[in-house]
């Protein structure tokens, strides 16, 4: 299968690879997918509790080139956004940006799910602190 230039570029130079401390109250972690399905994405956000702005994002992905590119792109996009804005990112935007073929759409879905999972995790942490 031929990959789009943007997928290849993200695969060769993935942005924001790494991990943030999971226990940090300002860090939200989303881990989605399963090894049996061939895709696991971990996406982490560091959120400013005052402004709800995402100040840093990191990812690690087990999956095909399109999965790696989707999660790399997701980290780029969420940085500087508020958590509510990040929650609104749609997988179709990732499909368009990376020119993903139909068989790779699930990679973009997974990236969207990872963002949402990370945001939810951060919100849960914030809520339990508020109690």
């Amino acid at each position: 299968m031929a990959y789009s230039d943007k997928v290849i570029e993200h695969y060769n130079n993935p942005r924001n690879v790494g991990s943030l401390p999971k226990e940090d109250p300002d860090v939200g972690t989303g881990m989605v997918g399963a090894p049996e399905c061939g895709d696991v994405m971990k996406l982490q956000l560091r959120v400013n509790p005052e402004t709800s702005v995402i100040e840093d994002a990191k990812f690690k992905t087990f999956g095909c080139g399109s999965a790696i590119a989707s999660s790399s792109l997701a980290t780029e996009w969420v940085k500087g956004k508020t958590i509510d804005e990040a929650y609104e990112i749609k997988n179709t935007e990732i499909v368009t940006e990376l020119s993903l073929p139909p068989v790779k759409i699930h990679c973009s879905v997974l990236a969207e799910d990872a963002i949402k999972a990370a945001v939810s995790d951060w919100k849960n942490k914030a809520e339990s602190r508020a109690k």
Binding site: P14, V17, K42, T61, F62
Partner: peptide, 17 residues
């Protein structure tokens, strides 16, 4: 593997399976 969350977990001693 540097990119793999599974490898990271394995190195932390988590049995991924």
């Amino acid at each position: 593997r540097e990119l793999s969350p599974l490898y990271e977990m394995a190195k932390e001693g988590i049995d991924v399976s």
